[in-house]
């Protein structure tokens, strides 16, 4: 899909997200693809905090705040309720952050995938609990400085790798799963449009840079979201019918991760050795991808 194919309708507008917010862009674009018959559930997180400041209510469609842990289970209920009322043309869509997905909401998500409920779950990943003041989440990358993983001399930021949520969702034997980035919206829109037509559980994991938490300028959001894909650190892929596939393959040789890291204050403390270790990890991951996704 491209910009010309999108509706002029704006379903997420007037919200209080920080200037340059990647998460707000992910929600806005997803809603433009899904249209007015999308019923949205949002747990605690940035997008519910900025979208529902009574009486400033920024969704033009039906939208509700779920419990933090219960995004997927509320979607299950919304879908069942609408079906019971005889509705046929609708999407039950959830927008949860990285913490609400990989930490707090993972059990409800796992249950919904297991049941095969006909829902679309979108995780907008800004790589920490940004809404509450940049605490580490299960999707914070290795080395990232957050308020709970400060960068010191001995321990330099987050010591744990990012949870592989896309593979975790796929490992359930989910109907459809995909990774995306707000830097490449045409690819993201294709995935949303595809997910809309598939019956069963759909999981889309979209990287959404956060100027506040990442320590970047507000106008750098898109280029960072492109860099993370171009460096090979975040492969854009999908999983369908048991098969993994790259959708927008990063060109090799990949862009140097050094430039991506240097732009962000959360990574400024990383040593050359740290960056080399992250790069080696990326290369190992790509060996696996080439073998498993592309059979080479």
């Amino acid at each position: 899909m491209n910009a010309r194919e999108l509706t002029k309708d704006e379903y997420f507008f007037g919200h209080k997200a920080c200037a340059g917010c990647g998460g707000a862009l992910a929600v806005r674009i997803a809603m433009k693809v899904l249209g007015k018959n999308a019923y949205a559930a949002l747990p605690a997180g940035c997008m519910s905090a900025v979208g529902f400041n009574f009486p400033q209510l920024c969704f033009a469609n039906n939208a509700i705040i779920s419990t933090f842990a219960g995004t997927a289970s509320m979607l299950t209920g919304i879908e069942a309720g609408l079906r019971a009322q005889g509705a046929t043309d609708f999407t039950a869509v959830g927008f949860a952050g990285d913490g609400g997905t990989a930490d707090i909401g993972i059990q409800a998500l796992s249950g919904a995938i297991d049941r095969g409920d006909d829902i679309l779950y979108i995780c907008y990943d800004n790589e920490a609990y940004m809404n509450t003041g940049v605490q580490k989440s299960g999707l914070s990358p290795f080395g990232a400085k957050t308020t709970t993983t400060p960068a010191g001399e001995r321990i330099r930021g987050n010591i744990r790798p990012k949870k592989r949520m896309f593979e975790i969702a796929a490992a359930h034997g989910i109907a459809y799963a995909a990774t995306a980035s707000v830097g490449y919206l045409n690819d993201y829109m294709d995935k949303i449009a595809k997910a809309k037509t598939i019956r069963g559980t759909k999981y889309i994991h979209v990287i959404a840079p956060c100027p506040v938490g990442w320590g970047t300028r507000t106008d750098e959001t898109i280029e960072l979201a492109r860099d993370i894909a171009d460096t090979g650190l975040w492969p854009l892929a999908e999983y369908e019918n048991g098969v993994f596939r790259l959708t927008k393959r990063a060109r090799e040789p990949f862009a140097d991760p050094q430039n991506y890291f240097k732009k962000q204050s959360r990574f400024r403390h990383l040593t050359a050795g740290d960056i080399a270790a992250i790069t080696a990890d990326r290369d190992l991951n790509w060996e696996k991808i080439k073998k498993e996704y592309e059979g080479s």
């Binding site: 507008f13 007037g14 009574f54 009486p55 400033q56 209510l57 920024c58 969704f59 033009a60 469609n61 039906n62 939208a63």
Partner: peptide, 8 residues
């Protein structure tokens, strides 16, 4: 409350 209701 009503959807898409902005005051600010």
């Amino acid at each position: 409350w009503e959807a898409g209701y902005l005051t600010q």
